[in-house]
């Protein structure tokens, strides 16, 4: 079966202004809105479009996290994914997340694994590349266009110098960038239907993985804030201020 696996990470919603706990042990997440990582929504949207075009047959969403990530997986099922896998584990480092994805890739034999280019909580930007290495398969990171043709994919990548195009043999790992597509909205009937779709829950040890902590978070700080500056009343005043600082 032509299958696509999609990573769905639950993160603090991108609209929330993050605050560091007063004792510097973390950021405040209690009572804060959690959502699907925006890049993962885009990855899912792309997988669904490939399925709708007949280029894939099944879309499976995977999340590693606490039991509550069920909510985000249900949303993903409502968007159109066929089934979900929840791997219950908290605070998993990208390398272990990649190992979990590898085990599931070996089990599911997908055509593609589509992940976000980064999770907007830790901003690591590592998991897809690590999975591709462990799986010994191609990686196409920062994708802004994906075209499947038979046993290959042609992917346009947003790189610092512009737009790079590469061709990769399938199966492959693709990590997606923001401009790949605009995810669909979920409709109410879909939410109800999604409740009946299969959601499998397992623990990492069922996959033979014991997550390790090797990058220890020792301190969280609020970033240095910039001083609010001055308001100028017109362009002349602006020019004068910049000239006084030697900037023009």
């Amino acid at each position: 079966m032509k299958r696509i696996l999609v990573g769905i990470k639950r993160v603090v919603d991108y609209n929330i202004r993050i605050r560091v706990k007063p004792d510097n042990t973390g950021v405040i997440t209690d009572g804060v809105k959690q959502s699907i990582n925006p890049f993962d929504e885009i990855a899912l949207e792309e997988a669904l479009r490939l399925k709708e075009k007949g280029l894939a047959e099944e879309v499976v969403v995977i999340s590693i996290g606490p039991a509550e990530v069920q909510n985000q997986l249900r949303t993903a099922l409502a968007m159109g994914a066929d089934r979900a896998v929840l791997v219950e584990a908290a605070g998993v480092e990208p390398l272990d997340a990649a190992k979990i994805f590898l085990k599931l890739a070996e089990r599911e034999q997908p055509l593609l694994v589509m992940l976000g280019k980064q999770a907007i909580d830790d901003d690591n930007n590592q998991t897809g590349q690590m999975l591709a290495a462990l799986w010994d398969r191609p990686q196409a990171t920062f994708a802004s266009k994906v075209e499947l043709a038979g046993t290959t994919a042609r992917v346009t990548r947003e790189v610092d110098a512009g737009l790079e195009t590469i061709e990769v043999d399938l199966p492959a790992v693709i990590t997606v960038d923001l401009r790949l597509n605009e995810p669909r909205f979920v409709k109410l009937p879909e939410i109800i239907k999604a409740k009946k779709k299969p959601l499998e829950t397992l623990k990492p040890d069922a996959l033979g993985i014991t997550p390790r902590q090797r990058v220890h978070a020792t301190h969280y700080a609020a970033p240095g804030t910039r001083q609010k500056g001055v308001m100028v009343k017109d362009v002349n005043e602006l020019m004068a201020a910049l000239a006084a600082k030697g900037l023009v």
Partner: peptide
């Protein structure tokens, strides 16, 4: 982390 809204110290 968090788009620069927190600065994390890590020990490897």
């Amino acid at each position: 982390i968090y788009a620069g809204n927190a600065i994390l110290t890590v020990e490897v």
